[in-house]
């Protein structure tokens, strides 16, 4: 899933400036799972903002709404009939949702309420870790199912680098060396001989480097 983290409320207040009718818009998907932008967080942010504006003796209306998704036309359309009541939206969806909402409601300012961080997994409640950078050309078959692009600080394809110590990354003792994991996994799969195969230069044109990407699937298009 896409993992996001809360933005400091001071930053959101700063973004909102003088707006007086604000919709806090949550999303029921990834940001709900990572507890940054679901219905619960919409409620918490709305209460905090109401409190803040009350203290400021400002009459600001704050409404709450949480959509099934903000990255689909279908669900974003659900608020079309009432969008005009607001002079700003704070979207607690990931960056995709914020942008899609902004594209759809072109004359309404849409502010991000979270920082979108990465594609990752829930290790345990309150701990999410990165697993994928969407490079567009998956190499997991060669690396024992562990991704050096997203999990190695230098994304080395023929690792580990000289900084791997006690199985930890040189940048932080809390970070496991991805190549340590790859080697352990290759060993468990009885494929350690594969380690000596040179990984060729990667084609990054399917990555961010190639510019904005799209997936076109004519077979499923209407």
């Amino acid at each position: 899933m896409i993992v996001a983290d809360k933005k400091p409320i001071e930053e959101i207040i700063e973004e909102l400036g003088t707006h007086e009718k604000i919709l806090i818009l949550g999303c029921n998907e990834c940001v709900t799972v990572c507890e940054a932008g679901g219905k619960k967080e919409v409620g918490i942010l709305a209460s905090a903002l109401r409190m803040y504006f009350l203290n400021q003796k400002r009459d600001v209306k704050i409404d709450e709404e949480t959509l099934q998704r903000q990255c689909d036309h279908e669900y974003l359309e659900e608020i079309r009939d009432r969008v005009d009541r607001y002079d700003a939206i704070v979207s607690l969806a990931c960056g995709v949702g914020v942008q899609f909402a902004a594209e759809k409601y072109f004359s309404t300012p849409v502010y991000p309420g979270v920082n979108t961080c990465f594609m990752g997994a829930t290790e345990e409640r309150g701990l999410w870790t990165e697993r994928c950078q969407g490079c567009g050309q998956c190499i997991l078959a060669r690396t024992g199912g562990i991704c050096p692009v997203s999990r190695c600080a230098k994304r080395v394809l023929n690792g580990p680098c000289g900084g791997s110590t006690d199985g930890k990354c040189e940048i932080n003792k809390e970070i496991i060396c991805a190549w340590q994991l790859i080697i352990e996994r290759l060993k468990a799969l009885d494929r350690l001989d594969d380690y000596e195969a040179l990984s060729p230069l990667k084609d990054w044109s399917t990555d961010r480097a190639g510019g904005p990407r799209k997936v076109v699937r004519e077979d499923v298009q209407p």
Binding site: A153, K154, R155, V156, L157, N158, G159, C161, G162, G163, E170, I171, L198, S199, P200, L201, K202, W204
Partner: peptide, 26 residues
């Protein structure tokens, strides 16, 4: 491959790592 930029004076900089040291040899 080089030490990670977080050790240096531009810790907020981007790193490149388009290729790795093994691939540089090649």
């Amino acid at each position: 491959s080089g030490d990670h930029q977080s050790f240096g004076d531009c810790a907020q900089g981007q790193n490149v790592h388009d290729i790795d040291s093994m691939q540089l040899i090649q």
